[in-house]
Design a protein around this nucleic acid. Structure first.
Lengths: 102, 102
DNA sequence: CGGAATCCAGATTGATACTG
DNA sequence: CAGTATCAATCTGGATTCCG
């Protein structure tokens, strides 16, 4: 989802640019994920045969449509994140104390 | 997502009923998932102290809202499933043959 | 019925080193 | 720059058994 959103917002990006935007991802996971997205037809991968190598990634129409589909979830997450956090703490306080008494 | 949709469509359900609707899920995963959903405040879990035990699950308002948020993804998946499948086969034929020559 | 506890094979992932 | 290859550690999920 993060890569999807990165490409949705920034348009065409290079490998390391995606890596910087989706900070915390290992280059292995980045490679695997963009490859799978390419397989699925969500992204187009363009290799420019120059030295040093230059590879561009951009969303396909299907990729864009998935990004839009996820928009609702994205908005939901932002909106309810705090509420979820509170629910977790409330649950921990109600049930956790019975399992891990002081 | 499957559990969420099951509860969204059928309303209140019992443990084994969810298991039947979400067929293929192990009871371990079912337990884990409904527990996490309960922790997150997405579902309400009601235990009726009778023998044999009777436990009901239903979505909370937040759970319903998440279900709605996922609706777009759900529709997208149905709509583009075939397209994704085709893209995968096309990719396999274009690239796989170079790595695994006949 | 609705779980909890245990065991275990296999999938994921990060870290690291190497390459054209 | 944009990867690939490999190892090790972790995490996951399924199967099984037991319980009130």
């Amino acid at each position: 989802m993060l890569i999807l959103e990165a490409l949705e917002e920034h348009g065409t990006l290079r490998f390391t640019q995606i890596g910087r935007i989706v900070s915390g991802i290992s280059q292995k996971m980045l490679t695997q994920t963009v490859r799978r997205m390419e397989e699925d037809g969500l992204v187009k991968r363009t290799v420019h045969p120059v030295i040093p190598p230059h590879v561009d990634y951009e969303l396909t129409p299907i990729g864009h449509s998935l990004s839009e589909a996820f928009c609702g979830v994205w908005v939901w997450a932002e909106k309810h994140r705090d509420e979820i956090e509170r629910a977790r703490r409330a649950f921990a306080e109600a049930n956790g104390s019975k399992r891990r008494p002081a």
